[in-house]
Design a binder for these strands. Structure first.
Length: 241
DNA sequence: GCGACAG
DNA sequence: ATCTTGTCGC
């Protein structure tokens, strides 16, 4: 896939917040691809492991055919990470490795699902929105927990959802993807609206808490990270105290 | 000033 | 996210 180079990632937390303020003005939170026109959807996720002072990150992108949800392409990438986890600045920790993985993707998806928020962010530029701008493709944020905003508990049946509101604005939705389980927080990333985002996420669910793209990316990235743990530790021996 | 806080 | 055995529940 084509990946735009909008700004450097080697920045301080202070600069990171300023960059988000700048990028949010370019976001497009409306419309989105019609479910009937979707042919391919993708899911992306990361996994971390610390070896001494070095933190290694694995990034994975899985492309599925839609609506069959069959895997058609998978990409795995590994990089070192220096940016710390800071609530609200997640993209600066995860984007580098994920964008590298996306560069290797051949089948451009009609929409990409990320494990984190999109518009439901303090500055309206969560991971999904930030990467949507770099990829110039519709994206959706699928977070397992809330970052900001409030939502009524959705009904217990699968598909039920309530609006996630922050400062009087609807920024996403709490969606019941699996009965008996806490709701999934869905929010627009880029080039899509709340309603369409929820519709697509539900169309990607097969009974599990997470939609297939994200669920498969999560399973694959964790497996890769663990399978290469020993080799990675050995390769980084010189850098370990 | 005191909580809350994606992964 | 990651560290971790067994265990309660659908």
């Amino acid at each position: 896939m084509h990946v735009l180079d909008l700004h450097p990632w080697e920045v301080s937390p202070r600069e990171a917040a300023a960059i988000q303020q700048q990028l949010r003005t370019r976001l497009v939170i409306e419309d989105g691809p019609a479910v009937a026109d979707l042919r391919f959807v993708a899911g992306a996720d990361t996994s971390y492991r610390r070896y001494g002072t070095v933190t290694v990150a694995y990034g994975v992108v899985v492309v599925l055919r839609f609506p069959a949800l069959e895997v058609v392409e998978t990409r795995v990438v590994r990089t070192r990470v220096t940016f710390p986890y800071v609530p609200g600045l997640l993209a600066f920790r995860e984007a580098p490795v994920l964008l590298e993985a996306f560069r290797q993707v051949e089948q451009t998806p009609g929409v990409v699902l990320f494990d984190g928020h999109g518009f439901a962010h303090p500055r309206r530029l969560g991971l999904a929105s930030h990467l949507g701008l770099f990829l110039d493709v519709p994206t959706i944020g699928c977070a397992k927990s809330r970052l900001i905003g409030k939502a009524e508990e959705p009904a217990g049946d699968r598909g039920a959802f309530t609006p996630l509101v922050h400062k009087g604005e609807v920024i996403g939705a709490a969606v019941r993807t699996q009965p008996g389980h806490a709701p999934l927080f869905v929010s627009p990333g880029h080039q899509i609206g709340v309603e369409r985002a929820v519709e697509i996420v539900l169309a990607c669910c097969r009974g599990a808490f997470l939609p297939e793209p994200t669920r498969l990316a999560d399973a694959l990235v964790n497996e890769q990270s663990r399978r290469h743990a020993d080799a990675d530790r050995a390769a980084l021996a010189p850098a370990i105290d």
